[in-house]
Amino acid sequence: MTVSLSTHVLDAEAGRPRVGVPVRVERDGAVLERGVTDEDGRLRFAHVLSPGVHRLVFDVDTPFYPEITVAFRVAAPGAGQPDHLHVPILLSPFAFTTYRGS
């Protein structure tokens, strides 16, 4: 089983997508892929993820957060996880929220 990954950065203060946010996918300290959010605040990664713990690192540069790291687990085959993971963040200057989207 292979798992693809996408993200979406929404600016809660401005009420619109956050364009141009550098984002990288890491595993075990190695960068697997880098990208930048598009005009809709979205980024779909080409790299296919294997089971284990991965990290999305968002270079958001808010007044409080220079970056946000979201760690998540890709389940082993047969564990019922979908073949695509969507991990968005809702961002404001002093807070953020994330969830496993669809």
Rank of each mutant, 00 (worst) to 15 (best):
V87T: 05
T37H: 08
G29V: 12
H86C: 12
G35D: 03
V19T: 10
A30R: 15
D59E: 13
D28T: 13
R18G: 05
V31G: 11
L85N: 03
G20F: 08
G52V: 07
A79V: 12
V19K: 05
D38T: 07
L32P: 01
V60D: 02
G29T: 13
L49V: 02
A30C: 15
H47M: 01
R18W: 04
V48H: 06
V21H: 02
G41D: 04
D40P: 15
A30W: 15
F58N: 02
H86N: 14
V87I: 10
T69M: 06
G35Q: 03
D61V: 10
L32I: 06
V70W: 02
L32E: 06
E26R: 12
D38Q: 06
V23G: 00
E39P: 14
A75C: 13
D40E: 15
A71C: 12
A46L: 00
P66C: 08
E26Q: 14
A30F: 15
G80R: 04
P66E: 08
F64G: 10
F58Y: 08
R73A: 14
R16D: 12
R42F: 10
L43V: 00
V53Y: 14
G78D: 12
Y65I: 03
Q81A: 11
F72N: 07
Y65T: 03
P77E: 14
A30H: 15
L43H: 00
G41S: 12
E67F: 05
P17D: 05
R73N: 14
R34A: 09
E13H: 10
H54I: 01
V36F: 03
I68F: 02
P82I: 08
I68S: 05
T69V: 06
P51K: 04
A14E: 10
P17G: 09
S50I: 07
L85G: 01
R44Y: 05
T37R: 04
D83F: 11
A75W: 11
T69R: 08
R34S: 08
R44I: 04
P88L: 06
G35V: 00
F58C: 09
R73I: 14
P22I: 01
R27H: 13
V70T: 03
P77N: 13
L43K: 00
